[in-house]
Amino acid sequence: MAVGLDLLVQFFPNFASIVLAATGLAIIFGIMGIINLAHGEFIMVGAFSTSLAYNGGIPFLPIDALPGLGRLIGAMLFAALVTALFGLLVERTIISGAIPNWIAERTVGHPVITPLYDRLLDSMVATWGLSLIMVQTFRNVFGNSLSGVPIPFGKLSYGNSSIGLYQVLLAGVAALVLVGLYLLFVRTDYGMRARATIQNESMAQSLGVNTERTYMATFALGSGLAGLTGALYAPLLSIEPGLGAAFLVDAFVAVVVGGSSVVVGTLLSGGLLGIVDTLFSNVYGTFAGRIALLIVAIVLIRFIPEGLSSLVERLRERRLEVD
């Protein structure tokens, strides 16, 4: 009984970290056909911005002067915004090549960069280059670590153990993020455009969807989510330039396992992988948890190549057939 409760409580933070690590990556991959290998570094930007803002390191923006919880929340929102803007910049310079091409057209007379949209392998290589640049630049500029952010809320006791309330609450935030994304994709104009673009890009264009703007918004959104993840985990991590790597396994395995549908896929893979991670980490240690994640991913891809979200689609279709 106590073990069961222990596992249940442990599950929440694991679920949260997988979902939060994966959503930004999944959105950019699903909609733009870009694998952002610098995703971990975008998370790192979020964590650094949070630390700087919280500790009063941002000029003219005295977030550290806000009272109580406002100081932390303010710093986190600021970090998500900064990362989204940074993502926008990356999209315009590297992913779409729009800025370099704009300059090249006025100097050399022709564009020099083909956009990386749907060039999966090239996008991986390019963003990896970006990740190397970011890690080392941050290390050179900020040193090996920044001062941390305190963990809010204290401990939650159950049985003879305890866990940080904040870690458990993160699962709620993760769920909120998924609900928010669902509403965004289903209810808003942007969501309609994004889904139209996934279904059929040229069709969407001919219907007047500005796919380039959709891509810009998508990359900024995905980056903002990565930044939010970094912000949310800033209290739990030591703020150092390599921190993004810790999220990579979770993020990639979740996207691989989840499949094409961002919200449903991430929810399912977060749930399943969270359970696997909790069981194995608790019983055999962290490393066993990682190995188990990898094995589950390989086995699942072997049997469900289109990812978990395809299962749901199949179920829904079967129900339609019965009707």
Binding site: L120, L121, A245, L248, F252, T286, I298, R302, P305
Partner: peptide, 23 residues
């Protein structure tokens, strides 16, 4: 033989490296 598409092959190889290093 698992029918993993090219992109996932790339990601899986990366994950293998990360896991091996953790080990």
């Amino acid at each position: 033989y698992g029918g993993v598409s090219d992109v996932y092959v790339t990601i899986l190889t990366l994950v293998v490296v990360l896991v091996l290093k953790t080990f």
